[in-house]
Amino acid sequence: MTKTVFFDLDGTLTDSKKGILNGLKYSFKAMNVPTPDDKTLQLFIGPPLNQTVQKYSEIQDPDQVQAFMAHFHDYYGETGWQENAVFPGIMPMLADLKAAGYGLAIATAKPEMFAKKISTRFGFDQYMTGLFAATDDEMTRTQKDEILAYGLARMPEKQLANIVMVGDRANDIAGGLVNHVHAVGVLYGFGAKAELVQAGAEVLADSVTDLHRKLLDWQV
């Protein structure tokens, strides 16, 4: 039996707020469309970008959505992905979990090219057995349940009771539950407690320290 943990990236392993918000503001300006306030922009972090653009802005036409995403990728690919920081305590947690024999992986709705850059930059890849993300064009495999299913098929552990999805947004929790694995919500990221509870999170972690303890004790 190998306990396996899939981690979301933005808001779970890293604080990516600065780079994403800067990228969004750049994109709205490039599109000559009113920019939502920062509180609304924070809601963009986590779910697929093509969905949040239509949900939280005036941009509705599919071609305009694609143009917006192209601007975002221009900024994020050059600068935004580097405006990122690992949450304190994450690296010791990953080291302890790996030393305890856990299988670790990233499951993110971020395009694969960006996820790989970030994983390499911060050294996540030394702990991860797999990295599973959206396709680079964000047209297929964009939903967390699809990404997690893709990852589950490629990780060695197949007993669902031994697998957990950890994330800070409702789509992370829903993705775990759809795939019949445990779902843990973290409260130090970008999602509210009510969002995670409503999505069906089985366990909540108040901090990285709390998450570390609960995963090692397998309180999931």
Rank of each mutant, 00 (worst) to 15 (best):
F28S: 08
K29I: 09
K29E: 09
K29A: 15
K29H: 12
A30Q: 12
M31T: 12
N32P: 11
N32G: 10
V33S: 11
V33E: 14
P34I: 06
T35R: 02
P36I: 01
P36Q: 03
P36A: 01
D37K: 03
D38E: 14
D38L: 04
T40P: 01
T40D: 03
L41T: 04
Q42T: 09
L43T: 09
F44P: 00
F44M: 03
G46A: 06
G46I: 00
P47Q: 03
P48F: 02
P48L: 04
P48Y: 05
P48D: 05
P48W: 02
L49P: 07
L49I: 08
N50W: 07
N50I: 08
N50Q: 14
Q51I: 13
Q51D: 15
V53A: 06
V53C: 05
Q54F: 06
Q54D: 06
Q54G: 14
K55F: 03
K55Y: 02
Y56P: 00
Y56R: 01
S57P: 09
E58W: 09
E58Q: 12
I59L: 11
Q60P: 08
Q60A: 11
Q60M: 10
Q60S: 11
Q60L: 11
D61R: 10
P62H: 09
P62T: 11
P62V: 09
D63R: 14
Q64Y: 08
Q64G: 13
Q64K: 15
Q64E: 15
Q66R: 13
Q66S: 14
Q66M: 15
Q66C: 09
F68Q: 05
F68Y: 06
F68H: 05
M69H: 03
M69Q: 09
M69L: 08
M69A: 09
A70V: 10
H71G: 04
H71K: 10
F72T: 07
H73N: 14
H73W: 05
D74W: 04
D74F: 06
D74I: 09
D74H: 11
Y75R: 01
Y75E: 04
